[in-house]
Design a protein around this nucleic acid. Structure first.
Length: 579
RNA sequence: GAUUCAGUAGCUCAGUAGGUAGAGCAACGGCCUUUUAAGCCGUGGGUCCUGGGUUCGAGUCCCAGCUGGAUCACCA
């Protein structure tokens, strides 16, 4: 891992050179960070798409980052990257500097600009002898000097060399990742397109996008462990929401026909390539509907999202081709288990289920009840095999304390999940609106909590009170937006669809400053060089032999051609004595 | 939490048997004076993740730790 150094910064050679260039630019009267706007009137994408058929671009203003430079004496080629892509620039000395003073080209452009700097240029578009659409620059302006060298990613004939791939650096410095990895930028564009598509779909249907509390005195709506925080003025514990379900249902009680929220939820659990402590779900509740109706909505909405993003329902995800075209396959949970194991468990009791689980070598433990056993068998034997989007319906009641009991099947609830690429995509049910039944289900959860289940749900009196006023029959849905984005962008990890995935904080390495060395008796003229010469700790320096310090420092002086008199051994002994 | 792999120059990586730390790109200087060039020649650049240990000698072997990845476990 790269360490951040605090206080004193030890700069690499290249960083030092860029800082020197920065000073020289200022001394030449070039402001490296100008304040005024630079009016851009075209993007690289527009030029590359429209030239020369729709527009010959006799005059353009464009800005971006220098991604490569090829200098050939009085002429140069530069690759400029803006938000939409890259285009080549052609610089010619006598066009940049029509007068005798060639400083702008020879010094500012050739020597003081770097890979990574942000510039604005004025020019006209033409095609080189090599057939590449290029901007012939007539004026340029430095807009921001880059002091840190970017990773150098080379590309030739669509092959990428030395790609910037280290996940640690990519996630910690996402800005760098976005600059040098265009496919990363594209994945996030797709994610936003997907969200926009879903929002558009729901808005057209007339459902209301709402906002509900993130800070909640009681956390509910899912089985998960929360993050806990404290509100000072009220002097109470608050939790970051694990779901927004119970608030949205209160709004249905309040009389809205359909409400939805893109909800940032927080769960204090393990992290892996499918889990980040904060993640996004969309939850939707529609009055007077049931789960059958909701299944049709999900199909239609996700199919539309796929088309809006890719122009097709068919997409490649890892090794698989996934088709979101309606209708999706539907199984009941029992049906799916029978399909994949050949065993009909629909009428089995707990003991029989244990035997089936053992026979299928599904790991179980004695605390598992009937519902949990079925869930385990399904999770082990069915879920990983469901690659194409598939609905699984009718779950055991024990697993679903907020879902309505099945209208005909004893012991089940009206619930479905969509599974895709072996993972849950969404979860939905006919919402439980019987307040007495709901209270009993909460009480059952409390029992589980007393037995040590840290994820059991908490009884929410206010939510129950709202149900007592009467909630219409309602269909509810939750979709994991990050998981869906993984599929839609063919990403293997949730970290690839979150701009800033949670990471352990970078270590800050305390570095001494030259003042720390002055404090123990080293003259200022030498103190600034000590760290670079290898003495990174004043304590170690004090304990080092004076002969060794003497030799090391004189060696350093010679190597770096310092303009300081050579040290005598007595000088060094003098410093140490002072301490 | 367990197992496992990785961490070496600004970036991507090599480093044999434990014996003076390497390459390509990037940087710097020069060539080239020009609608092309990942061009040619030269130069500089290192806390080999950190701390211990073994050894005459450690990037390399051993122990501990840090960070990340993968797999598993847990978990809607």
């Amino acid at each position: 891992m790269r360490k951040i150094t605090k206080m004193a910064q030890i700069l690499s050679e290249q960083e030092q050179i860029r800082r020197d260039s920065l000073k020289e630019l200022i001394s030449l009267g070039v402001n490296p960070y100008p304040a005024d706007t630079f009016d851009v009137d075209v993007t690289t994408k527009e030029i590359l798409e429209n030239y020369p058929e729709k527009n010959t671009y006799p005059q353009v203003n464009i800005a971006g980052r220098i991604m490569s430079r090829r200098i050939m004496g009085a002429a140069s080629f530069v690759e400029l990257q803006d938000a939409t892509g890259r285009i080549q620039l052609y610089f010619k000395r006598d066009d940049i500097c029509p007068d005798d003073d060639k400083t702008m080209y020879n010094v500012v452009f050739k020597r003081l600009l770097d890979f990574g700097d942000i510039i604005g240029v004025k020019g006209f578009v033409f095609v080189t002898q090599m057939g590449e659409t290029t901007i012939h620059v007539t004026e340029f302006k430095l807009l921001s000097k880059s002091l840190k060298p970017l990773p150098v990613v080379k590309e030739k004939d669509d092959k990428v060399y030395d790609a910037f791939t280290d996940p640690d650096q990519r996630y910690r410095q996402r800005y760098v990742d976005l600059i040098v990895n265009p496919h990363v930028k594209d994945a996030f564009l797709k994610r936003t397109k997907m969200v926009n598509s879903i929002r558009e779909y729901l808005n057209i249907k007339g459902y209301l996008e709402v906002e509900t509390p993130v800070l909640q005195p009681l956390y509910g709506g899912a089985a998960a462990r929360p993050f806990k925080t404290h509100h000072n003025a009220l002097d109470i514990t608050l939790y970051l929401r694990i779901a927004n379900e119970l608030y949205l249902k209160r709004l249905i009680v309040g009389g809205y026909d359909g409400v939805y929220e893109f909800s940032k939820d927080f769960r204090n659990e393990g992290m892996d390539r499918f889990h980040n402590p904060e993640f996004t779900q969309i939850e939707l509740y529609v009055a007077y509907k049931d789960y059958e109706w909701m299944m049709n909505l999900v199909e239609e909405m996700i199919e539309k999202a796929a088309i809006d993003i890719h122009g097709t329902t068919l997409l490649k995800v890892g090794e698989n081709e996934i088709d979101f075209k309606r209708p999706w396959k539907r199984y009941t949970m029992f049906g799916a288990i029978e399909h994949f194991t050949g065993i009909d468990i629909s009428a089995m009791n707990e003991q029989e289920l244990v035997e089936v689980a053992q026979k299928l070598s599904v790991k179980i433990d004695p605390s598992m009840g009937k519902g949990k056993l079925i869930d385990e068998i399904f999770g082990e034997k069915c879920e990983p095999n469901l690659i194409q989007p598939t609905f699984i319906t009718d779950y055991p009641v024990e697993m679903s304390p907020l879902a309505k009991k099945h209208r005909t099947k004893e012991g089940l609830v009206e619930r479905f999940e969509a599974i895709c690429n072996g993972k849950e995509l969404c979860n939905a049910f006919s919402e439980l609106n019987d307040p007495i039944d709901q209270r009993k289900r909460f009480e059952d959860q409390l029992e589980l909590g007393k037995r040590g289940d840290e994820e059991s749900m908490i009884l929410d009196e206010d939510f129950l009170r709202s149900l007592e006023y009467g909630m219409p029959p309602t269909a509810g849905l939750g979709i994991g937006i990050d998981r869906l984005a993984m599929i839609m962008t063919n990403s293997n990890s949730i970290q690839d669809v979150l701009f800033f995935p949670q990471m352990r904080p970078e270590k800050v390495q305390e570095m001494p400053t030259s003042a720390d060395f002055v404090a123990i008796g080293v003259p200022e003229i030498w103190a600034e060089h000590l760290m670079k010469a290898g003495f990174t700790n004043p304590e170690d320096f004090k304990n080092a032999k004076s002969t060794q310090i003497h030799q090391t420092l004189n060696g350093y002086r010679k190597k770096n051609k310092l303009d300081i008199p050579a040290l005598l051994l007595e000088d060094v002994e003098g410093w140490i004595k002072k301490t």
